[in-house]
């Protein structure tokens, strides 16, 4: 099974491991991530303004390319996932944005939200299935107590992301269970890490990450997993912070494909 794949800027640079472990795991699970030929950066933040068109075009281009290939579009980074799903929702439901974006793009056939955007985790849950995943695990992470950190962009707005219950998600917890480890549920797993604020206001982000870190620790977690390079960066800045891993690293480890993946 082949999916179109949108890696995003950071996975080509600072988060190469997030990407490499995902590809290796995908092959082990029997699907392939086929990188889009001409992807451009999504911008990291979804442009909220109703009159912002140009800043949405890179996403439309990626969505249209996947449509041409007739494939679902998979992404790994929480931010890319957020931007792509929201732009796709605009192209499906907001006539004004759809019309104006298509006027700019001059595609052979106008794009109207036909592509299905999936987070890699959705592929694991809905296509592979956690039961199958569990069967393919060769190095179960038995005994590890792992706190899933969702952050904000994976889940919200719930109506558009449609990934999981935005207030009480289970996706990463089920994932952790499938790898043989024990999920630690704590209340700040869907609260923001500070995001881009850490560039100019590092203390603000640090405060927020401290709350997240303390809460997870308090419930007995030994480490975090996340899907987002920025979440990981911010969480890593906390004092006495728990180690933070990309979920794909643990996945590759459990599937026995970690060695040689990088």
């Amino acid at each position: 099974m082949i999916f179109s794949y949108y890696p995003g800027c950071t996975l080509r640079n600072k988060a190469k491991d997030l990407d490499a472990y995902a590809r290796a795991s995908a092959e082990a699970l029997g699907f392939t991530l086929q990188e889009l030929d001409n992807w451009q950066c999504c911008g990291g933040v979804y442009p909220l303004g109703t009159d912002e068109i140009a800043s949405k075009l890179s996403s439309v281009r990626a969505l249209a390319e996947a449509k041409d290939k007739g494939q679902d579009l998979v992404t790994l980074c929480s931010a890319c996932h957020h931007v792509l799903k929201r732009v796709n929702d605009d192209m499906t439901n907001v006539e004004d944005i759809r019309t104006r974006a298509n006027n700019y793009m001059k595609l052979a056939e106008p794009y109207a939200g036909e592509t299905k955007v999936l987070h890699f985790l959705e592929v694991l849950r809905d296509v592979v299935g956690f039961d199958t995943l569990k069967e393919k695990v060769v190095n179960p992470l038995t005994g590890q107590k792992i706190a899933a950190y969702y952050g904000c962009l994976l889940l919200r707005p719930g109506k558009i992301m449609a990934l999981d219950d935005p207030e009480n998600p289970k996706l990463l917890e089920d994932f952790i269970r499938a790898l043989g480890a024990e999920p630690v549920v704590y209340p700040y797993r869907n609260e923001c890490c500070g995001g881009y604020i850490s560039l100019k206001e590092p203390d603000m982000a640090k405060n927020m990450c401290n709350t997240i870190n303390e809460s997870a620790k308090g419930f007995g977690a030994e480490c975090f997993i996340t899907a987002c390079p920025l979440c990981r960066y911010n969480l890593n800045k906390t004092e006495q912070g728990l180690p933070v891993y990309y979920f794909t690293e643990l996945l590759a480890e459990a599937l026995g494909v970690k060695e040689g993946a990088l």
Binding site: G8, C9, T10, R12, N13, V45, L199, L230
Partner: peptide
């Protein structure tokens, strides 16, 4: 403001935002 670990995503987001 940039340190060694800073992900590209952070600069991109901050630029778009600010």
């Amino acid at each position: 403001l940039v340190d060694e670990d800073l992900p590209q995503q952070l600069l991109v987001s901050a630029y778009r935002r600010y």
